[in-house]
Each structure stands twice: as C-alpha cells, then as structure tokens.
C-alpha cells in the first residue's frame, strides 16, 4: 500500500504543497512565499510539508505539479493545470460547489464544475495584473497599509471612493490623487475593492455563476473583497478553509487518482544525484 502522494502548486508569488495519505486524508500542507518562485522554492515547499507529516520523499508514490510554474520545474510525475486542480480541490472540500472563484497572485479565474468535480467551463484574466493579488499588493504599498489590513479597514468605510481605473498603473496614480484630496484611506481601499469586484464579477458572469460558489486563492483572505463579491453576485460564498492551498490539494488528489491503479515511484527532485543526497539529510522530522 502506498504511504502518501503530494500536490505542489507553483504560483507566481507563492509555492504551496499538500500531502495526502492513501485514503485521501490531508497529512500536511505548506505555503512558501517567494519573490520569484522557482524550482528551489517549490521543492522547499514540498519538503516543508513532508517534515510536518513526518515523512520523507521516499514515502511519496506520486507527485503532481500545478500552477503557472508546473512545467518549469523538473520534478513531479505529471502536471495538471490549475483550472482542473482548483475544481478538484474545491469539490473535495465541499461536493456541492458548482463555481470556484480563484484570485491568486497574478491571475484570477472563474471555474464552473459539475457534481463530480469536473470542469464544465472556465475563464481566466488576460495578461494584466488588474483584479489580482498583485494589484492589491501594489495598492497597499502605495497607501502605506499592510496587505492583511486592507480587508478589515475597508469594512469600516461608509462611503467608498470612486476608483474608475482597472489598470494597476493608472489605479495607483488615481488613489494617490484621491489621497491628496484628503479622501480617507478607508474609503479609498473600499473603492479599490469595488473596482476589483466589478472586474471579477464581469468575468465570472461570462461563464455563468451557479451556487454553491467557493472562493479560493490568497485574495479570499480579504474580507472586504469577499463582502463586495457576495453583494455583487447575490451569493453567499463559501471560503475555502485554507484558500491558498486548494490548487495544491487538487493536484494531490490527481496524484492519488494516478496511483490508485498502479503505484509508482515519485519524482521529487530535479537533480537526480546531488540534490537527492542533500535531501537525505533532511529526513528527520523538523
């Protein structure tokens, strides 16, 4: 019997890993923030999760990679797109989910799935940071506010400012000019959330939002955005318990599906000799 499988989601701003046992129970997970996600951070994320699970890379029967870096890294037995992985992860967490809205570091997507967790339709933003985690990061910095504080602050607003621009660059100058007119930070942040909300809702309506809606991705941690989306979509979204790992969870579920037939040997390192020896040294649980 296999001991465990893993899913690794190599996103634009973070790398995430999830380890599942043979029954599909989550043993451990990890999130590694990184300026530029590369092979190394992806591996660090996987090994961090392995340590939490008191397992070594030898215990993994299969590894699926996903996210924008899924084909850039050399480890992993298979890669599956983040679209399919988010659908699968969301379905595992709550089978009633029919729409997933995922807002990650550099992309946002809306996925419609069926009762089996299979993708029926999807859409993604194009090459533009508007309406993504990156957009919020830039705005938080421009306002001198911590990223985590955006949500709570925006909820205090009674009069959200009008932020018309959807372009990250223009929105930044727009909020600076609002600030110089003494519009409060709270109202500016609330206005930004409205602007992101309109963009996401426009995209999601294109694929046809049906209940139950789950929100995933790092931006789901922002209560302000969640509230705006709920109001605009007329839904009460379920927020994934740890919204950043839904993709990695889905990847791990695909890995489990692969080994249910015939267990294989997992590929967990990119450089076969040197790197694997290095990993040997990390075997003891942290």
């Amino acid at each position: 019997m296999i001991k465990a499988v893993a899913g690794v989601d190599i996103g634009s701003l973070t790398a995430k890993a999830v380890i599942l046992d043979h029954r599909g129970e989550v043993l451990a997970s990890s999130i590694i923030p990184a300026g530029i996600v590369n092979e190394k951070t992806a591996e660090v994320s996987l090994h961090k999760a392995l340590r939490h699970a008191h397992l070594s890379s030898d215990d993994l029967a299969f590894v699926v990679t996903t996210g924008y870096g899924r084909t850039l890294v050399k480890f992993g037995n298979k890669n599956v797109t983040e679209i399919s992985c988010h659908a699968r992860g969301a379905h595992y967490l709550l089978p009633a989910v029919r729409t997933v809205i995922d807002i990650g570091g550099q992309d946002s997507k809306a996925i419609v799935l069926d009762s089996k967790g299979k993708v029926v339709n999807f859409t993604m933003n194009d090459k533009c940071a508007a309406g993504t985690g990156r957009f919020l990061e830039v705005m938080a910095r421009a306002l001198g506010v911590e990223l985590e504080d955006l949500g709570p602050l925006s909820l205090q607003s009674r009069n959200p400012a009008q932020v018309s621009s959807v372009c990250t660059v223009f929105a930044e100058s727009e909020i600076i000019s609002l600030a110089s007119k003494n519009v409060s930070k709270v109202d500016i942040i609330a206005g930004l959330h409205e602007s992101i909300g309109r963009r996401i809702v426009g995209m999601a309506k294109g694929v046809g939002v049906r209940p139950t809606v789950m929100m995933s991705g790092g931006v789901a941690k922002n209560q302000g955005i969640v509230q705006v989306l709920n109001r605009m979509l007329g839904t009460d979204m379920v927020i994934a318990p740890e919204p950043q790992i839904v993709g990695a969870l889905g990847a791990a579920l695909f890995a489990l599906e692969e080994v249910e037939g015939a267990p294989t040997k997992a590929v967990v390192t990119s450089a076969p000799v040197a790197r694997s020896r290095q990993l040997e040294g990390q075997k003891q649980p942290a």
């Binding site: 599956v80 983040e82 399919s84 993604m124 090459k127």
Partner: peptide, 30 residues
C-alpha cells in the same frame, strides 16, 4: 482566446489550452 495577432506559445495560451483539453478528456471519460 482573446489575443494580439501574431502570438504563439505564451504560457497563458498553454495553460488555457491544456485546461481545455483536460476538460474535454474528462467529458469523454464520463
């Protein structure tokens, strides 16, 4: 796929195409 004329294999196109094919294969499986 909403694109500029002339583009070929950007990561964005690859991800969408791969996801589309995964979706079609899933549909066939059903």
């Amino acid at each position: 796929l909403d694109l500029e004329y002339g583009v070929s294999g950007s990561g964005q196109i690859r991800t969408r195409a791969q996801a589309f094919i995964e979706m079609l294969l899933d549909k066939k499986g059903q």
